[in-house]
């Protein structure tokens, strides 16, 4: 249980990496299932989106630490990315799109970091466009992204927070949607899915009642390759599928309301 030393990547004898795949082994990255989003944070947060260090996240696209050699911006954000299953699938589906996972639990973030590094080593041309950051996305979204920067945002299997007293901790809420609408560009899409019916209803009604979002039609959902990934790409989704559980999804588009 005691696991304080940081796992070293690339070390041949590193016991935290699997011998056959060189991927980090999940059992060394056990974390509690929940983290309090309301507590004060002790990790560093960029002062503004200009302070986000792209070369640290995407060294392949940004070889120099302080150059704007590439005007590329992060376009996908997976909020509460967990163990990173969706990001890994998206990375190869959209090889030229920068994407980032945001996760509050530090050990989980650490795992995803190692996973991406290991994947980059074993597939030298791939996974350069994906990264992860430990942060509280309910508090610091505007510190990472400029207005209308994102084209997709993902909220997959978020914490349900059943008690009414704790509803304000839910990551989809009417007030937080204002912030998400600010960072998503016109036509950008917000994807949500859960296996908790009550939360599914809640997320759907929040989005439905928000003037800056509109639902996708069935045809559009059918045509979007990302929608299929929602239920099968993430670890949480696979768990639900294994247990034969139901999932509830809400996919909405950012619109500019006509006055």
């Amino acid at each position: 249980m005691q696991l304080d030393e940081k796992p070293q990547s690339g070390d041949e004898s590193n016991p935290y990496l699997s011998k056959s795949t060189r991927l980090p082994r999940k059992r060394f990255y056990r974390a509690r299932a929940h983290s309090n989003p309301l507590s004060d944070s002790h990790f560093p947060v960029p002062i503004s989106p200009h302070h986000v260090n792209h070369s640290l996240h995407y060294p392949h696209f940004f070889p120099n630490s302080n150059s704007d050699s590439d005007s590329r911006k992060i376009e996908f954000a997976d909020i509460g990315c967990g163990f990173g299953g969706l990001l890994i699938s998206l990375a190869t589906l959209f090889p030229n799109t920068l994407m980032i996972g945001m996760e509050l639990r530090d050990k989980v973030t650490e795992y995803v970091k190692e996973r991406i590094l290991a994947l980059r080593i074993s597939n030298p041309t791939q996974y350069q466009n994906v990264s992860v950051v430990r942060t509280n996305s309910m508090k610091y979204i505007p510190n990472y992204f400029q207005k209308s920067q994102l084209s997709k945002m993902f909220f997959l299997f978020p914490d349900p927070h059943f008690k009414e007293k704790n509803h304000r901790r839910r990551v989809i809420s009417p007030f937080l949607l204002d912030e998400y609408a600010y960072v998503i560009k016109d036509g950008g899409i917000i994807y949500t899915i859960t296996d908790v019916e009550e939360l599914g209803e809640w997320m759907k009604s929040c989005l439905e009642n928000h003037p800056l979002f509109e639902g996708l039609s069935d045809e559009e959902l059918e045509a979007d390759p990302v929608v299929k990934l929602l239920s099968c790409a993430t670890e949480e989704g696979q768990k639900v599928e294994r247990n034969g559980g139901q999932t509830f999804r809400a996919v909405y588009r950012r619109i500019v309301p006509t006055v």
């Binding site: 503004s48 505007p142 800056l212």
Partner: peptide
Amino acid sequence: GAHEIQSYCLG
């Protein structure tokens, strides 16, 4: 409600 955010002044 005021849903449209014009900007954030961060620094």
